[in-house]
Design a protein around this nucleic acid. Structure first.
Lengths: 231, 231
DNA sequence: CATAAAATGTGAAACATTTCACATTTTTAT
DNA sequence: ATAAAAATGTGAAATGTTTCACATTTTATG
């Protein structure tokens, strides 16, 4: 029955699985398959919006997403996350209201899983539950680190850190195209559009990066590392 | 057998239970009781230290604790938490290394639960697991909010917010004694000792609070709320 | 109780960032 | 292709915060 790829069910096929989904057995994967809808988003499309009700857990199988929250003074980008990962567990599991928005930064494939199915897996498969707990724990520690960096580093340090993050964690290359415009980049670094422009120009003039619009090539990684650790 | 209070086992007696522990049955509470050690900390004593290995989940049954992380430039107080609550799940469940320190701000009673017992409960009691997940989710959303406030509000707003937090959430009274000295208060608000002094004096002179060393009485809550929402 | 040590208060200078203004470039829509 | 709209770059002034210096108060210790 499963001889050709086409006959393999969606969730069995979706090979880039989370640690949690890896703990599911075939019957459970079938069940996931039944209650799961896959949607593809284009860049800049809203996956879910702050304030709206939510009844799905979302698993990103491919793509890049920004997590945005309306702050008292401006929009803040809490983080940029890359598939494969879960999205919106805290929101959906808690009070059902999205406390932030998720917006695609590039073509992104998302699986919407009904929260009751998700809860059922937690109930019936303790390995799955434990992996979800691990995932949430990791997110919490990461968020602490981001917060400390935002608050304690000056802009040059934050910029250096973020460029290294894009190169090392997101694109796995020293050459990449920024997925954000200057304004969004400022909202991610918690600064202003103007400062972002100025510092990028500065880094460019000093030969730390080469800059051409959104195209960035990191030329001196050690220097960036130094700026991050001393600014 | 359980006629007098003294005969009731520790974890059955520890009535201020977490939502998670409420899902445990009597047998499980007995098991928790066996593998759980209760310790009392005096103010300023370290409950666990950043960098050290950890193999316990901690449940605070009474007291007040500060969560401290060594930042690149200074020590940062991530949050002040009040019993009853869990402590250190992300740390213990993840890589076993404490990513922050926990220090008692007043007499605090903490139950150290072996992580294998904890994992066992997650495995065997899905309601327990789900409550733990809920708890972690709530923490994540709270942390987002704290981070946004820290980054987007100016010092007057952050100070107003923190005073309201102490009054409303921690002490449930408009009159309280700060559990932190000026330096720690600065580390919590991510500012300097001097600014904290100046703003507290200012609030005092303007009749928003009455200030006497660490003793604070909030006189004009509406004004604080206004400063928080506009600063 | 006396003395040292730690914590706190406060003005002035130094600093980083934000805001403003406006020129320029790039993108979008017709 | 061309006009309109959006995004970007950059200097200068305004602002908020940090740092420094030092006086004062409070707390700890013998």
């Amino acid at each position: 029955m499963n001889k050709t790829n086409e006959n393999i069910k969606k969730c069995h096929k979706c090979l880039i699985k989370s640690n949690a989904a890896n703990k599911l057995n075939f019957t459970e994967l079938d069940e996931l398959d039944e209650s799961c809808v896959q949607v593809t988003f284009k860049a800049s499309e809203i996956i879910f919006k702050q304030g709206a009700l939510s009844s799905n857990i979302i698993y990103l199988s491919s793509g890049l997403v920004k997590i945005v929250i309306d702050g008292p003074n401006r929009e803040q980008i809490l983080k940029v996350i890359k598939a494969p990962c879960y999205l919106g567990i805290p929101t959906t599991v808690g009070d059902k209201i999205n406390h932030y928005s998720a917006i695609a930064l590039e073509k992104t494939t998302a699986c919407f899983v009904d929260v009751s199915t998700f809860k059922n897996f937690i109930k019936l498969n303790s390995d799955f539950a434990y992996e979800v707990i691990l995932d949430l724990c990791k997110n919490e520690l990461d968020q602490f680190q981001r917060c400390v960096n935002l608050v304690q580093l000056q802009m040059h340090g934050r910029m250096a850190k973020q460029l290294l993050f894009f190169a090392n964690e997101i694109y796995c290359s020293d050459e990449f195209e920024l997925p954000l415009n200057r304004n969004d980049f400022a909202n991610l670094l918690c600064s202003s559009r103007e400062i972002v422009s100025k510092i990028l120009s500065e880094f460019n003039n000093e030969g730390i990066i080469s800059l051409n619009g959104k195209k960035i090539k990191i030329l001196d990684k050690e220097k960036l590392q130094f700026i991050y650790q001393n600014g």
